[in-house]
Computed example of a mutant assay.
Amino acid sequence: MQRARLRAAAGAARAAGPQGGAPRPDPAPGGRGVGSRVPQRVSTQPGARTHGQSRGADPQAGSLALDLVPDIFAMRVLLEETGEMFQVTNCRGDMTVRELKEELDLIAGIPLNLQQLQYLDQGALVDDSTLNSHDVVPGGIISLCVWHYDGWTDLVSAAVEGDTSKLSCLGVAEESPCQSANAQYLGEKHWKAWVAQRAFVALYIASHRGRVEAVLYLLEHGANCHGRSPMGRTPLHVATAMGQSDCITPLLRYGASVHTKDAKGMTPQAIARQLNHRQDERQMFLSYWMAKSRRKDLKDLNLNKAFQSGKFGSGSKK
């Protein structure tokens, strides 16, 4: 009966649509979410888990066994502050909320430490709880909210829009006029750290969304392209994952590393190779060798020949 109620609730949720607004298209005009790039196949084989199949069950309960709950399924995540909808395709019932946040760090481009997830009316989901414990159903919609303290919601919205006029007033540079409840009590040292953190988050999101003008503005005003999210990802990681080639160029020009590994052991160059972003991989390869050899000519014939012959890679010494 519990499963029957869950299925009824799931049907009602799909009919009513997402909390906070109707589904929106993929967020970045120039790139797609990682979930849509590498879709996971949903299992419909006999080995998939079924509920309601037990000896002695009544006929009505037995008919519910036709509804298969897949081992791997897709979820939709609605970013409440912007109305953007993202898809996470590799969800599992025993997946923890923390693991889902780790996926969203890359898919939604929101650093893990700023995420607050909610499902239906359950309030904030605890990191070590599982999707099963919250009765999350395949295809359901989870709300992603940004923590409201210290003006983070305004900063995230401005970075998503790529609005430099708004960003300039939100504490992304030391000369910024931003006055939050906490900032006015910070000493000089902590003020600089506060500004650096906000500038990095804005750069991370703008790079993920392909907002070139905002990326350039932030880099010119001191945003650190070497900064990392809690998952160890840099702005170059997310720009590469989302295919934002126009943002990769200024990040490399300001010294972003193509060999920095995230918590999953992936470098930006490895991500480009995995997703078959040949032009981005080539650009990172040439940038790396140009910096190493102190050359400024990207048309160096030897480098182009080396790339075309495939005699390169993260471990190559040639």
Rank of each mutant, 00 (worst) to 15 (best):
residue 2 Q to A: 12
residue 3 R to T: 12
residue 6 L to Q: 10
residue 11 G to K: 15
residue 13 A to W: 08
residue 15 A to R: 11
residue 18 P to I: 07
residue 26 D to W: 00
residue 27 P to A: 04
residue 31 G to C: 05
residue 37 R to S: 11
residue 38 V to R: 15
residue 48 A to E: 12
residue 49 R to I: 03
residue 54 S to L: 08
residue 55 R to I: 14
residue 56 G to P: 09
residue 57 A to H: 03
residue 57 A to I: 01
residue 60 Q to I: 13
residue 60 Q to A: 15
residue 60 Q to Y: 14
residue 64 L to A: 12
residue 64 L to I: 07
residue 78 L to T: 15
residue 80 E to Y: 02
residue 90 N to D: 14
residue 109 G to T: 05
residue 109 G to L: 07
residue 111 P to S: 08
residue 114 L to Q: 05
residue 116 Q to W: 09
residue 116 Q to G: 07
residue 118 Q to H: 13
residue 119 Y to M: 03
residue 119 Y to C: 07
residue 123 G to C: 03
residue 125 L to R: 07
residue 126 V to Y: 03
residue 127 D to A: 02
residue 130 T to C: 03
residue 131 L to I: 08
residue 136 V to H: 01
residue 139 G to L: 01
residue 143 S to G: 00
residue 147 W to Y: 15
residue 151 G to L: 02
residue 157 S to P: 00
residue 160 V to Y: 06
residue 162 G to P: 01
residue 164 T to I: 06
residue 165 S to D: 14
residue 170 L to E: 05
residue 173 A to Q: 12
residue 175 E to Y: 13
residue 181 A to T: 11
residue 185 Y to D: 14
residue 185 Y to S: 14
residue 186 L to H: 04
residue 187 G to V: 04
residue 191 W to C: 00
residue 192 K to F: 08
residue 193 A to K: 02
residue 195 V to G: 00
residue 200 F to R: 04
residue 205 I to G: 00
residue 213 E to N: 11
residue 214 A to F: 06
residue 223 A to R: 05
residue 223 A to F: 03
residue 223 A to Q: 04
residue 226 H to P: 01
residue 226 H to K: 06
residue 229 S to V: 04
residue 230 P to W: 05
residue 232 G to V: 04
residue 234 T to Q: 12
residue 234 T to P: 10
residue 238 V to E: 01
residue 240 T to N: 01
residue 243 G to R: 00
residue 243 G to N: 03
residue 251 L to E: 05
residue 252 L to P: 02
residue 255 G to T: 10
residue 256 A to F: 10
residue 260 T to C: 13
residue 261 K to C: 06
residue 262 D to V: 06
residue 262 D to K: 04
residue 265 G to M: 04
residue 270 A to W: 06
residue 272 A to Q: 02
residue 274 Q to K: 15
residue 281 E to N: 07
residue 286 L to Q: 08
residue 287 S to I: 04
residue 288 Y to L: 06
residue 288 Y to A: 14
residue 289 W to A: 07
residue 291 A to K: 13
residue 293 S to L: 15
residue 294 R to A: 14
residue 295 R to M: 14
residue 296 K to A: 14
residue 300 D to T: 12
residue 304 N to G: 13
residue 305 K to T: 15
residue 311 K to C: 09
residue 311 K to A: 12
residue 315 G to S: 09
